[in-house]
Nucleic acid binder design. Structure first.
Lengths: 221, 221
DNA sequence: GACGAACATACTACGCAGTATGTCGCAAGT
DNA sequence: ACTTGCGACATACTGCGTAGTATGTTCGTC
């Protein structure tokens, strides 16, 4: 299944649950509930008991898999970033001019945001966590990893942006980094205002993603 | 002075400190420190003692002016929104085509974000506070006020957007609200990544604001 | 010299992260 | 068949951080 890679990554982080690869469904449930709680009430505002209650379980279950609340948050964050990365890199690898690639990347970004609001809202929150003091040296390593991935993510856009400028499909700008931050901001902001509506089909979502991406791309071409 | 109006608003909120209008400097210091703390560590992550420590004072001083931590947060939030509102409405009232007004409004928005990162970062955080449960019925009234101002703020842009479409200076879009949310997102996002640098003059800031706004406006024209 | 504003100090009550220990079921060994 | 072991939790408990309060203390003003 598609989750294999993710599970393998968990292995090293989570209480030594190596090979199994199937019982881990229990962990996925925890992550889902945690993502919702963190999204609604923030990191500090969420208690482990809140997550447990939503699970219909108790703290025991959570601490059986995660060392600490911070580790739990990190894992949700990592999962969110992974989904974003996967979607965007796939869109990037499909070829075309810089502008076409950029358009697809932003669309993929937006669509992923909408399809994973909970996880991605946590990712957005996570930016602040940068200076959070309550971290063990061990956690700080993971945090640096996350910040690194975040930076790589942005660089992906910067890179393709330059490609586009090279092939003439993207306009020259005063500050590429600034332009990219603007685009990413417009899309990331969706994590804050967007909430799935009952009457929303996958097509509607896709259409919104295309619309948002289109406006942003138009600004730089 | 320009703060008069704000002070008068405080009057009703803050432990009945009505007329004075000058000693309130003490309150401004508290708000400044609170804004910094909330920005760096979030609402729940900030303790009143943190704010007091940064002030070089103790809890006593803070609780002398504010009923609760939540009220303190609200006041910072309100101040941030007020500064945004003032800047944007001023830019709007200066006349011109829809597009010109929109351009100036977004520039003003961006510039205000940069000049008041601490306060505006709190405003950005505040969006989540929407569903926060830890509110007394009294606070909920204030919260509704804040959410209302936020909505009005967005409507300002929507309104001018339509003006622009009416006079032909702004392109027709599938969903005006969506377009505006994109623009505001790009600018609001600055509260997350932007931090003032030592070698930054007011002119540099202004230039960045114009650049960001330019890209966004170009997307809708 | 009395009184209140503007704080500081001292104290309490509680929520919550983290831990220690218990329980239940299943799977393998003999 | 029984038991031993272990994984997957639940229950019970502790200690600390922190919001809020109650009570000083100082200083200016009337």
């Amino acid at each position: 299944m598609a989750n294999e890679g993710i599970h393998r990554e968990w292995a090293s982080r989570i209480r030594g649950h190596e090979e199994s690869g199937h019982l881990v469904e229990s962990v996925v449930e925890i992550l889902d509930c945690a993502a919702l709680c963190f999204t609604e009430m923030g990191f500090q505002g969420t208690s482990i008991d809140d997550v447990a209650r939503r699970l219909g379980a108790t703290k025991g279950r959570i601490y059986h898999y995660f060392r600490s609340k911070t580790d739990l948050f990190f894992e949700v964050h990592r999962e969110g970033m992974t989904r974003l990365m996967d979607a965007v890199t796939a869109a990037m690898d499909a070829g075309g001019t810089g502008r076409e690639k950029l358009q697809r990347m932003v669309e993929a970004h937006a669509l992923t945001m909408m399809q994973n609001v909970a996880y991605e809202a946590v990712v957005v929150q996570g930016v602040h966590l940068h200076r959070l003091s309550a971290t063990t040296p061990e956690q700080r390593v993971i945090l640096n990893e996350l910040m690194d991935v975040r930076h790589q993510f942005e660089q992906l856009f910067v890179q393709v942006f330059h490609e586009g400028q090279a092939d003439g499909s993207v306009r020259e700008t005063a500050d590429t980094s600034l332009a990219v931050k603007g685009i990413l901001g417009a899309v990331n902001w969706m994590a804050i205002w967007y909430r799935p509506r009952a009457d929303e089909s996958p097509e509607t979502q896709k259409a919104m993603a295309v619309e948002v991406a289109g406006l942003q791309i138009k600004g730089v071409t």
